[in-house]
Design a binder for these strands. Structure first.
Length: 323
DNA sequence: ACCTTATTCTATCGGAT
DNA sequence: ATCCGGTAGAATAAGGT
């Protein structure tokens, strides 16, 4: 009864987790001293310019990273962009399998022999040990799941960074690669404001929900991840498009959620449930025919929860309207 | 590892449109 | 006939001992 935990596995905020104690990730003010946030591109950190409080680390640099070595001044880096999602960061050479030269001519037997040996050794060097192969495996899984869930690239990259850190911290032994990579992607998705429910992750992962959850918990404790409770508003766009709701209704749902959050209705509730209920309530207010059943089915929330929440939400919204 | 508490889920039924 | 709303009891999640 002392600590404020804001990092619940299903993304809801806790009862005593007052919002103002939660570090604002995307805001421009320091939660400690209200100073402005400074971006340290070199170190990938965001820190307060006044008091030096580091807001978060290991941000992805989205900008081009090209540097020229010819003369001074122009610092662009050259080459394929470095990506964390290749076990070798995309920097190794691959030798093609074709027994042809660059012009498509057949090679002599002698050359072919030489190439085969080269390939063999190249393989040995590029995936030289088990750890590297594990990374390969994990990043493959991250890519697969991310595209199944429609998660954007920066999010995948973050997941890759998290996974790499997890390996470096020695969190892997005793845990499956599948579970840990799923957990990393889950964490990354929430950090990027494109959350998906744990259930959604479990459905695209090769492992069950429980190990994923355990891995996530372990990960967030060990890496000291500061992840805010998921914002129900972030679920709106995906739900709205799945349910084919009008833009007007989606906007309305957003307003409803904002009103509800003013009144702390979201505390302790599942963000996905709130979002589903807001969609349903908004559709009802704009006279769009949609049943609690379909909303529940598409969002993975039971219809009981949809109706319990949507009543509350509309009450809160009406009250906010009256003032 | 077990216990407590709040929330959500499953199943079910009566009533409304 | 389908949708809504309410309810009981099981299940789950998170925190604490």
């Amino acid at each position: 009864m002392s600590q404020t935990i804001v990092d619940t596995a299903d993304g809801r905020s806790t009862r005593n987790g007052e919002r103002e104690t939660v570090p604002e990730r995307r805001g421009s003010e320091c939660p400690e001293c209200a100073g402005s946030i400074h971006h340290d591109e070199e170190r990938g950190e965001r820190a307060c310019a006044e008091c030096g409080l580091v807001i978060d680390t290991d941000e992805i640099d989205y900008g081009p990273e090209w540097r020229a070595f010819d003369d001074e001044g122009d610092r662009r880096r050259v080459g394929a962009p470095v990506t964390t999602l290749r076990h070798d960061k995309g920097l190794s050479t691959t030798i093609g399998w074709e027994d042809q030269d660059a012009y498509g001519n057949q090679l002599s037997g002698r050359k072919r022999e030489q190439l085969r040996r080269l390939r063999t050794w190249n393989e040995r060097f590029t995936s030289k040990n088990a750890a590297e192969r594990n990374l390969k495996h994990a990043f493959g899984e991250i890519e697969r799941m991310a595209s199944a869930l429609g998660l954007p690239k920066p999010c995948r990259e973050t997941a890759g960074v998290l996974y790499r850190r997890a390996v470096e911290e020695g969190l892997l032994p005793g845990r499956s690669i599948e579970a840990m990579s799923t957990a990393c992607l889950y964490a990354a998705a929430r950090q990027h404001g494109t959350p998906r429910t744990l259930v959604a992750f479990a459905s695209v992962s090769r492992v069950e929900k429980l190990p994923v959850q355990r891995a996530y918990r372990y990960l967030s404790v060990e890496l000291d991840l500061q992840i805010e409770p998921a914002d129900p508003i972030h679920y709106l766009p995906q739900y709205a498009s799945e349910l084919e709701i009008s833009d007007d209704a989606e906007r309305l749902a957003r307003e409803i959620l904002e009103a509800a959050m003013e009144q702390d209705l979201h505390s302790g509730r599942s963000p996905a449930g709130l979002a589903a209920a807001a969609i349903y309530g908004a559709a009802r207010l704009t006279n769009e025919r949609i049943t609690q059943e379909t909303v529940g089915a598409e969002t993975g929330v039971s219809k009981v929860t949809v109706r319990n929440r949507y009543r509350e939400l509309l009450d809160a919204y009406g009250e906010a309207r009256d003032r």
